[in-house]
Amino acid sequence: MKLLIMGAPGAGKGTQATALAERYGVPAISTGDIFRYNIANKTPLGVKVKAIIDAGEYVPDDVTEEIVAARLAEPDCDAGFLLDGFPRTMHQVHFLDTYLSGRGEQLDAVVSLLVEPEALVQRLLARAEIEGRADDNEDTIRRRMEVYAGQTAPLLFHYENKRLLVEVEGTGTVEEVRQRMFELVDARVEA
């Protein structure tokens, strides 16, 4: 199984990604986790990424693509994978498509968790209060939602055109969302 999971900040991607990866017996690969690991361990890549992030910039596509390609080449990905946080740009989408087709592979499904923007804002404000994240104020959260929507719309359109998109209503308990997601992905994969 080769899967992607997408969703706005606060949609529950991380939680649902773990469950989905376990269901299909594939590794959940989070680009954010890879960046944090490399930064914490001061690897050459981590030093490079930290300098970029500290300067307030996004990690360039070519650096992110290099990291993802290296991770997908590891043996535990032979049976498949679940990508969380990649791709984020059309450049990365085309890179992934080309990378997979070069290996004679393709994605099985792209899961998109759908949650109303207002519900996401309230979730993130509550999480910020619980976790003491002062940088997560309402204006910042709303801006992140706008950026996500603007950047992600073309990606979702691309995957919808390729008939890979599985849209999952992301409102409800973790278990309710998980059950809906499993049913929809199972149906997509069996089709």
Rank of each mutant, 00 (worst) to 15 (best):
G104K: 06
V147N: 07
L125Y: 00
A79I: 12
G85Q: 03
V93R: 09
G80C: 11
E131M: 10
R103G: 06
G104L: 02
M90A: 09
E105S: 09
Q106G: 14
L125C: 07
A79S: 15
E66L: 13
L120M: 05
V147C: 07
I130A: 14
L113W: 00
P75S: 09
M90V: 12
E146N: 10
T140F: 09
L113D: 04
H94Y: 15
R143T: 11
R123E: 01
Q122L: 05
S112Q: 13
R88E: 10
R133G: 03
T140K: 04
P117S: 06
E74C: 09
V115Y: 05
R88L: 11
R71K: 12
V68S: 07
Q106I: 06
G150Y: 06
R133E: 09
L125T: 01
R127K: 12
R71A: 08
E66I: 10
R133T: 05
V110K: 01
F86L: 12
T98V: 12
E146Q: 10
D135T: 02
H94G: 12
L100V: 04
T152F: 04
L124M: 12
D84N: 12
I130C: 03
A153W: 04
L107V: 04
T140Y: 05
G132P: 03
R88Q: 11
P75A: 13
H91E: 15
E138M: 08
R144E: 00
G102N: 11
F86S: 07
G85H: 01
G150V: 04
V110F: 09
E138G: 08
A153G: 12
R142S: 04
P117D: 05
G80T: 06
N137K: 07
A79T: 14
Q122H: 10
G102H: 08
L124Y: 01
A69R: 13
F86E: 09
G85K: 03
I130P: 05
D84R: 09
V93C: 13
L120T: 01
A69E: 14
V115Q: 06
G85Y: 01
R88D: 09
G150H: 12
T89R: 06
L96R: 10
L72G: 02
A149E: 15
S112F: 14
E146H: 07
H91R: 15
F95E: 07
D136N: 06
Q106R: 14
L120K: 02
A109M: 10
I67M: 13
G102Q: 10
